[in-house]
Nucleic acid binder design. Sequence first.
DNA 1: CACCCTATGTGATTTTATAACACTTAACCG
DNA 2: CGGTTAAGTGTTATAAAATCACATAGGGTG
Lengths: 172, 172
Amino acid sequence: MTTKPPAEQAKKRSDLGFQDHDHTYCVQTAIATAEAYCAEHALRFTPVRRKVLEFLLREHKALGAYAILDMLREAGFGSQPPVAYRALEFLTAHGFAHKIERLNAFVACNHPGENHSPAFMICRLCDGVSESHAFPAKGALGEAARAVGFQIEKTVVEAEGICPDCAEQATQ
Amino acid sequence: MTTKPPAEQAKKRSDLGFQDHDHTYCVQTAIATAEAYCAEHALRFTPVRRKVLEFLLREHKALGAYAILDMLREAGFGSQPPVAYRALEFLTAHGFAHKIERLNAFVACNHPGENHSPAFMICRLCDGVSESHAFPAKGALGEAARAVGFQIEKTVVEAEGICPDCAEQATQ
DNA sequence: CACCCTATGTGATTTTATAACACTTAACCG
DNA sequence: CGGTTAAGTGTTATAAAATCACATAGGGTG
């Protein structure tokens, strides 16, 4: 996976969200939201955790644990794998980030606080990831689960394909 | 992941399919189906590939690549990781097996030949896996994809929870 | 038979993730 | 406050998962 430089502009067409948005704004509000949520739920939004969430928000794409670890090192934090994995565990456990199983990588959550079962669109060309919603338990899978008596607790939904930007480039 | 002994009986309540079925029969027919499919499509159903599919069918649960590798070694095949990974790549590419991203493990396909987008129910207590169908592209995710212009090529749908057998044990 | 393409065998390495333990700091309780 | 406890962090080491690179073998075709 090639590492590309961070977004250089605020208001741009993100190559990851597949949609226009004000990126600096969404970083700030997401951090603020996380901070407020932690304050309310007696969770400790420590410097390492905050920093990792910042990285995920800023890069706005799926980051491997070791990429995050490199950034932590540069930021003066501990640089051994558990440091990154523990922060990521905290962030995913409380819904501030998600793991993309398909990529063994992590992204910041687009809808923090909301009660959601996330779904992801992963571009196989640029590795961009866009978060969406899905309710697989309401469809065929849910029926099958009820039929055999399986209790669904969590779902992983990841669609792989081509994002609009890469599709556009391919036609040029 | 603990390795448990293979199924000792043919007709039993599988702890993995979450349903009754004749296991020796399903192994034989699945191998025959794969063989026929390969013959028809000019694919080479080589000894290693056949053996790996046999392992997956016989164990009837998610197996890690290294568990498969151990079995290959015992069966007299090469015992380096690429041997297992290449066979698994072939099997998954042609729909004879699937990778469970959540577990970094592989299962034999329950519906070989059929054109399907698989979905899985994974028991977090016994690691049992049951294959089902899902059509995420027809639900909320499909709508989101169309809205932004994302072309879905493949989907990963995995539900984690408690299988009926483990739920039953828990109440006792 | 000579050729080529595919598959296999093997050693080495990379990438991803966890275990174990020491140390520090924040929270709690009197 | 002061002392205790639990949670968080830092670090070493190791496990688990996956790939790279290259040599060898086998099977089909001209």
